[in-house]
Simulated assay, not measured.
Amino acid sequence: MRVKTGSLTFQATTALAPYLRVKLTNGKLVAAGATDNEIGTLEQRVLAADDYAAVVPKNAEGTVKMVANGAIAQYASVYGAAGGYVDDVVNENFIGMAMIATAASGDHIEVLRQTKADELDQLGAIDGNVVIDCDFTNDYPAAATALDVGGTSPWIKLETNGLGVIESAEANGVVKCVADAVAEAATAAFWMPSMPIEMDAHPIVEFLVAVFDIGDAAALDINFGISGEGHATDFDASTNYVAFHLDGSDLSVTCQSKATATVAAVDSLVDLVDDTYAILKIDVTDKADAKFFINGVRVCASTTFDLTGWTAMASPIVHVEKSSNDTTFDVRADRIRAQWARS
């Protein structure tokens, strides 16, 4: 890497068009994906692999040239798109405002980088939302003892049989819900009733979670979501909930809710990858149409998850249960973040 005023210079992995969003892979430049956190944009074309190229960093002043993925209106919000492009299709990677209009894919576009209000709130830059951000970095006690979860608010846990909610040896700390191979009903769950969410306050909850053992029987149920209660044996028996759901022996993710009416599990068409963390987000900014996102991409968009009948308070929850069966499970949470408007 070389540094000059206003830009950084790196070697590129391959030839690249000018003005693409780029990131580093193994120390060399590649085009950034739709939800990748790019380091900046190319100042010029890269003719061949291993050539050096100047990059305008994300924090540079003023506007920056990028490449549009299609027609974009002037002053529209733009987001990351595949191949280093930008688009007006909404995802988790908000880039900024289009200062000029484009007509077709490949057009160059002038963009004013911006930061969303909720991102500023994460940094404590503005008042407005209540933000609960728990990064599970502590060591956690064994089953049948209190769950001392790090973060801005305490959590409680529920355990029946199995191994329960226990500590992990992972270096950055996680919370594990686990069960052993004993033919019995078992539940491992944790939630945060002491800092309840107001469902009319446009909550958004995000989970950084992974499944390390999906078990070998449909007797197993896994839920990551929002619930009005921590039900001991059957998550679906809760009065109100909105959640991502998985069944044992199947890494496919479904989405479900119960409030105004019950919406049975809808296939998201996304499978989790074993032993790999994913970001699952539930957005209830519109209570009449809760939205689900997996790794920044909306899923089940054609289904309406109406929560307007939900009047009680609620909490983020991770809930894993099995009926009388000897299947094992190992479900882990690394971080959970919730925010909602102040009343």
Score class of each variant (00 low, 15 high):
D118H: 14
G124H: 04
Q114K: 13
T152R: 14
P154N: 11
I109C: 00
W155L: 08
P154I: 07
M99L: 10
E159W: 00
D148M: 10
Y140S: 05
A144Q: 13
L123E: 05
A104V: 11
A144G: 12
I156Q: 05
G150K: 10
D139F: 13
Y79H: 05
L123P: 01
A82F: 08
T145V: 10
W155I: 00
E110K: 08
D121F: 04
E119F: 12
D135M: 06
I126M: 04
G151Y: 09
N91R: 12
N138W: 10
D121Y: 05
G96I: 08
V90K: 15
N91D: 05
L112S: 13
C134G: 07
V90E: 15
E159A: 03
T115Q: 08
F136K: 03
E110H: 06
G128Q: 02
T137E: 10
S105K: 06
T145A: 15
Y140L: 03
Y140H: 12
Y85W: 12
I109H: 01
D127P: 02
G151S: 02
Q114S: 12
A125N: 10
M97H: 06
A103V: 08
D127E: 09
A82V: 05
G128K: 04
P141H: 15
P141G: 15
G151K: 12
L158V: 03
D133F: 07
I132G: 04
V89E: 10
A101P: 03
P141C: 13
Q122A: 14
V89Q: 11
T102A: 07
Y79C: 02
G150W: 03
D107G: 04
I109D: 01
S153N: 09
N129T: 11
T145R: 07
T160Q: 02
A82E: 15
D88R: 10
I126Q: 07
I95F: 01
I100K: 03
N93F: 00
D127L: 14
L120V: 00
G80W: 10
G80I: 09
S153F: 04
V89H: 11
D139M: 07
L158F: 12
A117Q: 09
E110R: 04
L120E: 11
K157V: 00
T152D: 15
G151L: 04
D133S: 12
S105I: 01
F94A: 09
I100Y: 01
D148N: 15
V90L: 08
P141A: 15
A82Q: 06
D121P: 00
